[in-house]
Lab assay of single mutants.
Amino acid sequence: TGEEYIAVGDSTAQQVGDLTFKKGEILLVIEKKPDGWWIAKDAKGNEGLVPRTYLEPYS
């Protein structure tokens, strides 16, 4: 379980453990880390770190 967020920009994984996503994708945020990198899952079930500045709450 988690909260749904929509990507407001494209982000390409810079290192192992990062999640690549495109603008408009809905991501499920699993954990919000205080350093600004959140753990999220995409629609295909891929999981990784995403920069919170690229996400907005999805409603």
Rank of each mutant, 00 (worst) to 15 (best):
Q14I: 13
G36T: 03
I39W: 13
E3P: 05
Q15C: 14
F21H: 00
T20E: 09
T1R: 13
I26E: 01
N46P: 00
F21Y: 05
A40N: 00
P51E: 13
E4I: 14
N46E: 07
R52L: 09
A40E: 00
E25H: 06
R52C: 15
P34V: 09
P57G: 04
G45E: 03
A43P: 07
I6N: 02
Q14E: 12
I30T: 07
G48T: 02
L27P: 00
I30M: 09
K41A: 06
V16S: 11
E47H: 09
G2N: 08
K41Y: 07
V16W: 10
V29Y: 01
V8P: 03
Y58F: 11
V50W: 02
L19A: 01
A7R: 01
Q14P: 08
P51Y: 15
K32S: 03
E56Q: 11
V29N: 00
W38E: 00
G36S: 04
P51F: 15
W37K: 09
G17V: 05
G36A: 04
W38H: 02
V29K: 00
E4Q: 14
I39R: 12
W38C: 03
I6T: 04
T12N: 13
D42G: 04
V29M: 02
W38Q: 00
A43S: 14
G2W: 14
Q15I: 10
Y5I: 00
W38M: 04
S11T: 07
P34S: 13
T53D: 14
L28C: 10
T53L: 10
V50R: 00
K23M: 08
L28I: 12
I6A: 04
I6S: 03
T53R: 12
G45K: 02
L49F: 12
D35R: 03
G45H: 03
L55T: 01
G24D: 04
A40M: 14
T20Q: 11
T1I: 13
Y5E: 00
A40Y: 02
P51M: 13
K22S: 08
E4M: 15
I26R: 06
E4V: 14
L19S: 01
K41Q: 10
K22E: 05
V29T: 01
K32M: 07
L27S: 00
K44A: 12
Q15K: 14
Y58T: 07
Y54F: 13
D18C: 15
L49D: 03
G36D: 05
E31G: 08
P34M: 10
P57D: 04
E3G: 07
P51N: 15
S59D: 12
V29E: 00
Q14D: 10
L27D: 01
G9D: 12
Y5V: 02
Y5T: 01
A13R: 15
E25I: 03
I39T: 06
G17W: 07
S11E: 03
K41E: 03
V8W: 05
E25T: 07
I26Y: 04
L19G: 00
D42Y: 02
E4W: 15
P57V: 08
G24F: 04
E25K: 02
L27M: 05
E25W: 10
T12S: 10
Y54R: 09
G36W: 03
T1V: 13
D18W: 15
I39N: 04
Q14H: 12
Q15V: 11
G36K: 03
E56I: 14
T1P: 12
G45P: 00
I26P: 02
I26H: 05
G48D: 01
A7L: 05
K44S: 11
P34I: 09
I26C: 06
F21A: 00
K33I: 06
P34Q: 10
K41N: 03
W38T: 01
K22H: 08
K33N: 11
G2Y: 14
F21N: 00
T12I: 13
D18P: 06
L49S: 08
G48E: 01
G17F: 06
E25Y: 05
K23S: 06
P57I: 07
I39M: 10
Y58E: 04
D35Q: 04
A7H: 02
G36H: 04
P51C: 15
K22Y: 09
K23D: 03
V29C: 02
D42N: 12
Y5W: 13
V8S: 06
I30D: 00
D18F: 15
A43L: 10
Y54V: 11
G9W: 15
Y54P: 02
L27W: 01
N46H: 08
P51I: 08
S59E: 10
V50T: 03
K33M: 09
D35W: 04
S59M: 12
K44R: 13
F21I: 07
E47V: 15
P51W: 15
L49T: 10
K41M: 11
G24A: 03
K44E: 10
E3F: 09
G9P: 01
G36R: 03
D10K: 04
T53Q: 14
T12L: 12
T20A: 11
I6G: 01
I30V: 08
A13C: 12
I39A: 04
K32P: 03
D42C: 03
G45V: 01
L27H: 00
E56G: 04
A7V: 06
G24C: 07
G24P: 01
D10W: 05
Y5M: 04
S11D: 03
S59N: 13
G2L: 11
Y5P: 01
A40R: 01
L19E: 00
F21K: 00
G9M: 15
E4N: 09
E4S: 12
I39H: 07
E25V: 04
A7G: 02
E4C: 15
E31M: 13
E47N: 05
Y54A: 14
L19H: 02
I6F: 05
K22L: 08
D18A: 15
R52V: 10
Q15A: 12
K44T: 09
G45C: 05
K23P: 02
W37G: 05
V29S: 00
P57C: 06
Q15T: 11
A43W: 09
Y5N: 01
L28K: 07
N46L: 07
Q14A: 12
S59A: 11
I26G: 01
S59C: 13
T20D: 07
L19P: 01
A13I: 08
Y5L: 01
T12M: 12
Q15W: 11
S59Q: 12
P57E: 07
T53M: 11
Y58S: 06
L19D: 00
E25D: 15
A43H: 09
K32A: 04
G2C: 14
